[in-house]
């Protein structure tokens, strides 16, 4: 695989604000046409990392390319070919949908501007609302507008920063269908999210906490590298059982899911010995594949021990 097969290829990227290291030596490769999920708790440096990719911030340390352009020196070229959807809605609320799109289209000097605007209105189902002021739109429609606007210049790479925060499930589903369609057409997408179902819809994932890249790969790979064992318990009197388990050596997470309890830990042997202690015939215990959420929480707890 040659370097240009990667839409994003950076190594050792570091960014400090004052003496606080917000992104610490992150290396990341994203293949062209891939949907890459970027996860991590708030304040872990996801937004900062994305800003370095699209030329809004310069890395303090580290090298790499975005669409084959050096992230340090070719920021102007990068801007031309990247669509960046900011975490906070950042179009003009006092402009209508069409005016916003038209403004962006003019900035990129699209050859057939009118057609491009019409086309993007159509594709995102915004035709009937094109005269509405952006400020009057609901969260879901704002998100559609933002997506339409960052696609208007036919970018090769889409950077989406928490695009579905505050959007209802149906709109989220439609949004993801659209993303998959775009990826099928060859667009590369890097997307940050807090939703596990969305993470599962990505081709590959990276998990960032406290500026450190803790895990990356496909969902299965991420789950496998975490080496987390999870047991599911069903039966009566789960709350006292949960209390008994919490804090025991080897038990890292005890989470209630409806009528079940998920108990997980990284050391399978220790966990099993604790379970043997509390096990009663009234409860049914099953060992399952750890979920992504369990894995991420475990990763974050581990990182907390290491970095704070």
């Amino acid at each position: 695989m040659t370097a240009t097969d990667y839409a994003i290829d950076v190594a050792g990227v570091t960014k400090k604000f004052g003496d606080k290291t917000v992104v610490n030596a992150v290396s990341l490769q994203v293949r062209r046409g891939e949907i890459y999920g970027f996860l991590g708790p708030n304040g872990s440096g996801k937004t900062t990392f994305i800003r370095m990719l699209c030329g809004l911030l310069t890395p303090d340390v580290g090298t790499g390319t975005c669409l084959g352009f050096d992230v340090r020196t070719r920021q102007r070229d990068i801007k031309r070919h990247v669509g960046y959807m900011t975490q906070r809605f950042s179009y003009y609320e006092d402009l209508s949908i069409r005016e916003n799109l038209d403004f962006i289209a003019r900035l990129y000097d699209l050859p057939d501007r009118r057609a491009a605007v019409d086309h993007s209105l159509e594709r995102l189902g915004l035709v009937n609302r094109s005269r509405q002021l952006a400020g009057q739109l609901s969260g879901g429609w704002k998100q559609r507008l933002a997506l339409a606007a960052c696609l208007i210049h036919s970018p090769q790479l889409l950077l989406l920063d928490e695009p579905t925060a505050g959007v209802d499930p149906k709109a989220r589903r439609e949004f993801w269908d659209e993303i998959h369609q775009l990826a099928a057409d060859g667009l590369t997408v890097l997307i940050t999210t807090h939703y596990m179902d969305e993470a599962e819809r990505c081709h590959r994932l990276a998990y960032l906490a406290y500026g450190q890249l803790l895990a990356r790969g496909t969902v299965a790979e991420v789950v496998a590298t975490a080496k987390l064992t999870t047991w599911i318990v069903t039966g009566p009197g789960l709350p006292p059982l949960a209390a008994a388990l919490r804090g025991r050596d080897g038990v890292e997470q005890v989470v209630a899911f409806g009528n079940t309890l998920h108990v997980s830990g990284r050391d399978a042997a220790k966990l099993e010995s604790v379970i043997a202690d509390v096990r009663a015939p009234t409860h049914e215990w099953t060992c399952v594949r750890s979920g992504l959420e369990d894995v991420f929480i475990s990763l974050m707890d581990g990182a907390e021990d290491n970095f704070s």
Binding site: C54, G55, L56, R76, K79, R80, V82, Y84, T86, R88, F89, S90, Y91, Y92, E93, I104, L107, Y108
Partner: peptide, 13 residues
């Protein structure tokens, strides 16, 4: 303040 600057900076303007 309105956050539109980030968007403007991300375009070639």
């Amino acid at each position: 303040e309105r956050g539109t600057m980030e968007n403007l900076l991300a375009t070639p303007v």
